[in-house]
Design a protein around this nucleic acid. Structure first.
Lengths: 175, 175
DNA sequence: GCACCATACCTCGTAGTCGAGGTATCTCGG
DNA sequence: CCGAGATACCTCGACTACGAGGTATGGTGC
């Protein structure tokens, strides 16, 4: 998830670690901050995997800055992940939203629409595991104002996403 | 986060692992499924920490079922976590929603309202890191339909939560 | 001239999470 | 009576993430 976000940001333009940290914060910051201890190891992992390279520019600022560039393998990896959120990426909200943030980079409207359609299908699936036979699991939710709140919030989010999805798919289909 | 959810569910009633798995799925299932490889180690961690004990009932079903009970330490740990989402739990959406799911178990409306107020204050904080000097980081969002979608969804979620929070706090204040 | 903050990067140990695999038994349809 | 599917539990290796710490330098305010 972080990996995808880093690749996506670097595809837009090369950045050094600190800038990357700020852009990540801008993307998901308020609700899901990313610590240094998460970011820098992730950069290193991507580097050893050959997906990005660093160019050290000494003296520009206080510390020697390492400007990070995607390699061709990195760009390929990004596109592959955007194109194929097979199981994981559409299911998990975090990952899905990260895919969405960089979906623009797929370029082709038809491909973009295909990805959106997969998410749409997933959201429309009946959530079978919510039920235990007849009665919904956790039927006591309706006595509990806090669970009611959760339901309310979840429903609003899903509703907004659903209408946005159908609208946007229609727009993409008109090329 | 998973730890909190397990403690919360077991406080409501003792369960065995498989039931726990289903209730967890009902809580967060569609958007955030939990795998066995995550659940069972988590149970074991809580057990070694002395927060829960297992009672083996052989022969009830196919495999020997281990009914899990909270210990007193477990109940104390749950209450402590619900009462004190100091930094982490209000910030991170996942953790916060988990807190919400079990907030009922705090009992006292004044305490519950206090927790909600903390979340309210957090949501009303200006998201300072969204800006880089004057211009908002990622102002190009408005050229990108996908980022627009993200903004739309995020805003709807926050709006729903905000109005629910103020409403519920008012209700709690009337005891 | 010095304290303080922002910039910029990094390591460490710990802990959480994942998916893929495995092992049983019980139940029900054919 | 056989096989499929649900119930029930578990392990393993790999990866990801976390927070708390650390090291520097440059710029601003007093």
């Amino acid at each position: 998830m972080l990996k995808l976000a880093i690749l996506g940001l670097l595809q837009e333009r090369p950045l050094h670690g600190y800038e990357l940290r700020r852009h990540l914060a801008a993307l998901t910051g308020h609700v899901r901050p990313i610590s240094d201890g998460t970011l820098y190891p992730a950069i290193k992992r991507l580097e050893t995997a050959g997906l990005l390279i660093r160019e050290t520019e000494p003296g520009t600022a206080a510390a020697p800055r390492h400007t990070l560039h995607l390699t061709e393998a990195g760009q390929a990896a990004l596109l592959a992940r955007l194109r194929a959120p097979e199981e994981l990426d559409i299911t998990d909200e975090n990952r899905w939203f990260t895919v969405l943030a960089f979906l623009r980079q797929l370029g082709d409207p038809a491909e973009q629409a295909a990805v959106l359609r997969r998410r749409l299908a997933f959201l429309n699936e009946p959530a079978s595991f919510f039920y235990d036979g007849e009665r919904p699991l956790g039927a006591e939710e309706f006595d509990d104002p806090f669970r009611r709140g959760l339901l309310l919030i979840a429903r609003a989010t899903t509703q907004t996403e659903l209408s946005w999805l159908t609208e946007t798919i229609a727009e993409l289909d008109e090329h």
